[in-house]
Design a protein around this nucleic acid. Sequence first.
DNA 1: CGAAAAACCTGCATGC
DNA 2: TGCATGCAGGTTTTTC
Length: 308
Amino acid sequence: MPELPEVETVRSGLADHVLGRRITGVQVLRDRAVRRQAGGAEEMRALLTGRAFSAAVRRGKFCWLTLDGPGGVGEDYALLAHLGMSGQLLVADAASGAATNPHLRVRVEFADGPDLWFVDQRTFGYLTVADLVPTSDGGPGGDAGGSPVAPLLPAPVAHIARDLLDPVLAEPAARAALNRRVRAGRRGIKRALLDQELISGVGNIYADEALWRAKVHYARPTDRMRPATVATVLDAAEAVMRDALVAGGTSFDALYVNVNGASGYFDRSLAVYGQEGEPCPRCGALVVRETFMNRSSFFCPRCQRAPR
DNA sequence: CGAAAAACCTGCATGC
DNA sequence: TGCATGCAGGTTTTTC
């Protein structure tokens, strides 16, 4: 499932393959793939046609392509993508046979070269052309991976917090402030990790992996955790996502592929996620699966002791 | 107002 | 074989 490392892989691929290319057409094959667009697919087509992508930017699990103005200046809006559970952005030539792809939702055509495809089986993902608005969380900061700083955010992303690969959150003062915010709430630590308005980019897979690395149970109440323990969890979340990024992201059953269609292989490195009944790589105890927040939580019952 | 639950959606695996 | 059920789950919306 696309979480931060997968989306960053996609962003990087988009930066390499679609920037500077002029859009000549947009075909929406399923209307639901375009959301938060008052004028729907027709409005998206009108806003994109004739313009060119100028930068590929990401925050958390959201990725967007800013647009050059008609005269080559001005970046007042962007093509925003959220991949949901199964979304893919593929740079693919129409001749590559994916015309038969039953999950192709939107096709962006350029004056030159291969199309940009939005493919999504489970249809939780979407595209929209959104206005860029000033950030509300302290000015420019951008994101990791060498992408441009982001003094502006697409409106639907304005409430999304910075992610752990954001250079701003590498600063000790900012990290300490985040640590305090985590402990200010009264809830289980996993719930905090998954709160995109607190920290973005972490999904169910990396939350479980981070908590395993930090040896912390998912239900530990944040308001009773020591600052050093919270710091360990945040560092583990950052580390596991960086490791996954190096590997190209996690993938399952070929639902997720990067911008060129190559699957990541970090799933081979998962310690607990999806490993119910398998031995903990650290202590050998059998990994347990429990239902939490209407989804699965995997953990080692010996390394990660439940709160009393 | 904040937190928790429901809704959205499709394909695959499983059970009868 | 066919049908019903369960599961995957990020975000938005609704409910408490």
